[in-house]
Simulated scan of single mutants.
Amino acid sequence: MINVLVMSQCSPFDDLNIRDALDMTLIFAAVDQNVSWLFSGPAVLALKKHQQPNNIGLKDFFKNIKTLEIYDVENIFVCEKSLLDYGLNKHDLLIEAKALNFSQQQTLIKAQQHVVNL
């Protein structure tokens, strides 16, 4: 089994980077890879509860993030500083995620065989 990290750093409201990252994460999980997903910067906003993207003309794929547990994707991480920057805490998130400081993020990245940055 290969360790794969998907990293999201872009706003969930710009392009479809978060949607692409979700699709990629689910594909890796479907082929039995040990997949992790790290949200940092504005990407942490994709995990915020009670969003209504259809109000601004976007399809609501955020609810699909909740399906990760069905595919046994349990390694969801968020940048601790990014949560603070956007006034969020772990209780504001759609799914359970572990907050990592910069050093912990570096350790996570080094432990991977493949890193996909979207």
Rank of each mutant, 00 (worst) to 15 (best):
M1G: 14
I2F: 14
N3W: 11
V4E: 12
S8E: 12
Q9C: 02
D14A: 10
L16N: 15
L16E: 14
I18S: 07
D20Y: 14
L22N: 07
D23F: 15
D32N: 08
D32I: 06
N34Y: 05
S36E: 11
W37A: 08
F39K: 09
G41C: 11
A43T: 05
V44F: 10
L45W: 00
L47V: 10
K48E: 04
K48N: 08
K49S: 13
H50L: 13
Q51A: 03
Q52Y: 14
Q52G: 04
N55K: 15
I56E: 11
L58R: 11
L58M: 13
L58V: 07
D60I: 07
D60V: 06
D60K: 09
F61T: 03
N64G: 12
K66M: 03
K66P: 11
E69M: 00
E74A: 08
N75F: 09
N75V: 05
I76E: 03
F77R: 08
F77L: 03
C79H: 04
K81D: 11
S82W: 04
L84M: 12
L84T: 13
Y86H: 06
L88Y: 05
K90S: 12
I95P: 11
I95C: 09
A97K: 05
A97G: 05
K98L: 05
K98R: 13
Q105Y: 07
Q106E: 09
Q106G: 08
T107G: 06
T107N: 06
L108F: 06
I109V: 12
K110D: 07
K110E: 04
K110M: 06
Q112N: 04
